[in-house]
C-alpha cells in the first residue's frame, strides 16, 4: 500500500464536509454560500483538468501550485478530507517523486472532492425548501 493511501486512510476519520465550520465562516449567509458553490463548480473542474495534464506530464511545479489552489478552495468550503488530499498532492509534488504516486494522490483527491459536492448540493436544496 502506498504512503498516500495510508495517509488517506488516516484522514478518513475526518468528515467529508465540516458543515459547522463553513457556516460559521460565511456567518450563516446562504446567499454567499450559494455564490461560493457556484465559483467552486466552475473553478474546481477547470483546475483539476489542468492538474491532470500536469500530473501526466510530470510537471511538478504546476502540480504543486494547482493542488495548492485546490487546497485553498476546498478547505474554505470545509471539505476537510478533500483539502487534506490536495495538501498531500502538493507536498508530493514539492520534491522529485515517482509519477505513479502523483497519479494515486490525484485519484484520492478526485474521489474525495466527488463525495463533497453532493453533500454541499444536498444542503443547499434542503435550505431552499
Amino acid at each position: 500500500m502506498g504512503e498516500t493511501m495510508k495517509r488517506n486512510e488516516e484522514s478518513n476519520s475526518q468528515p467529508v464536509w465540516n458543515q459547522a465550520e463553513l457556516l460559521e465562516r460565511v456567518d450563516d449567509d446562504q446567499e454567499l454560500l450559494r455564490e461560493l458553490l457556484t465559483i467552486f463548480k466552475e473553478d474546481y473542474p477547470r483546475t483539476v483538468k489542468i492538474l491532470e495534464g500536469a500530473v501526466a506530464g510530470g510537471d511538478l511545479k504546476s502540480c504543486a501550485s494547482l493542488s495548492h489552489s485546490l487546497k485553498g478552495m476546498l478547505s474554505n468550503l470545509g471539505g476537510t478530507r478533500a483539502a487534506a488530499a490536495a495538501a498531500e498532492l502538493e507536498k508530493l509534488a514539492s520534491s522529485p517523486v515517482e509519477n505513479h504516486l502523483l497519479k494515486e494522490a490525484l485519484e484520492v483527491l478526485q474521489s474525495e472532492a466527488a463525495s463533497l459536492l453532493p453533500e454541499l448540493e444536498a444542503y443547499m436544496t434542503e435550505v431552499r425548501h
Binding site: 465562516r25 460565511v26 456567518d27 449567509d29 454567499l32 455564490e35 461560493l36 465559483i39 467552486f40 473553478d43 489552489s69 485553498g72 478552495m73 474554505n76 468550503l77
Partner: peptide
C-alpha cells in the same frame, strides 16, 4: 489572493 473562492469569501467577510 489568486484563488477566486477564497478571495470572495475574504471580501465578503471584511465588507461585513
Amino acid at each position: 489572493e489568486d484563488e477566486a473562492l477564497s478571495r470572495r469569501l475574504l471580501e465578503k467577510t471584511l465588507e461585513r
